[in-house]
Design a protein around this nucleic acid. Structure first.
Lengths: 198, 198
DNA sequence: TGATCATTAGACCGATTGGTCTAATAGCAT
DNA sequence: ATGCTATTAGACCAATCGGTCTAATGATCA
């Protein structure tokens, strides 16, 4: 799911160097964090020499990290759109999202950081990463809020609802990771919105 | 607040070597993460030579990180107890906790990781840290749940309420950090429990 | 006092870090 | 084919990494 094409390039042929770097970096940063991942590891996993990295990302590791974060954010927006597409109400959309992400959690080795925010805080250039993370978060919030509006909510209500949801989701992912249990994610809607009417 | 005495030793005299190491490590890990912090930095901030570190923490950096995490967890339990002490109901206790932590957020340079869970995931010894984090979390949950029971809730309800609260809190801290805005924390009770009855 | 132990002090180590630089190569225009 | 640019390839670098080790020092007994 999160491994499909970045920038909508056709996946029939092997991804190009730049994208292979982004893939490898995304996975490794999510798993070991920014500082915990060496360039050598990324290069090895991507099968790319060092010269290419600094050709495609002149500012090196930090550049690559931002690209990886951007790509991840786009993927999450896609999951949001898939989840809310055709949902009869907010709760249904949110629930579907949680289940999709729980499945993803199980596919990843379930000890990784949250795809969205995991990669964005450490590293030497803290302020740059912080701003980048905030922008990515707003992108995702906005996507969810659009669906809320389409379901008849006012703009303010939808934004507030979306923000609250992702606050809960972020905390939920953290707990799921700590316990290695994706059911924490599946249980989120009940926590946030109460037991469903049977 | 979070700088007071570990292990209840009197603060009149200078903290001993071991505690100075824990203080410095706590602060630096929270700020730059485990992998982002070098031993040299910690040693410099604590004013302690390398030999002492490996005397007090034979397994080195990882040992120190666990000690720092344990100490932090105890501090958080204290804030929980302070917040719920004398609170008329759950919501009041939770609200006080959020305000106290918001104040702490402002005192720290407000770009740090959540005191409880920020330090615990990266690093080479991932599994050890994960288990440690889960235990610390359960400690804090249990502390809050005890107050819930004292307020008349059943054990199950209290545990569930506490878990949900800290899920929200963890996500809230993350967002507060991203936006550099402690009001995200102060707004949490309204998000979780609805607008208060005026 | 002298003996014994805990602690401090920091020189030193091999490995790895992110980053630079030059040379070789591939792709594509003409 | 020729020339030009984009890309790959990897040797090389100083700096820093976490960790080990020996010697000096402090503290506390007999």
């Amino acid at each position: 799911m999160l491994r499909s094409d970045p920038y909508d390039c056709p996946m029939t042929e092997e991804p190009k160097t730049r994208d292979r770097l982004i893939f490898a970096a995304t996975r490794l940063f999510r798993q070991r964090g920014y500082d915990g991942t060496g360039l050598a590891e990324i290069l090895a996993e991507a099968g790319v020499p060092k010269g290419s990295l600094y050709h495609h990302f002149p500012e090196g590791k930090a550049d690559l990290a931002c690209a990886a974060a951007d790509w991840t954010a786009l993927q999450i927006v896609r999951v949001v759109d898939d989840s809310f597409h055709g949902a009869p109400d907010w709760r249904q959309g949110a629930t579907t999202f949680c289940y999709k992400m729980a499945k993803l959690f199980d596919i990843l080795n379930s000890a990784d950081a949250c795809p969205v925010f995991g990669l964005l805080f450490d590293g030497p250039d803290q302020e740059r990463f912080r701003v980048h993370a905030a922008a990515a978060f707003d992108l995702i919030i906005a996507a969810a809020a659009r669906h809320g509006q389409a379901l008849g909510l006012t703009r303010e209500t939808a934004l507030d609802l979306a923000e609250t949801f992702f606050i809960g989701f972020e905390g939920g992912w953290t707990l799921a990771r700590m316990r290695r249990d994706s059911d924490v994610l599946r249980g989120l809607p009940n926590r946030l919105y109460g037991r469903p009417p049977t």
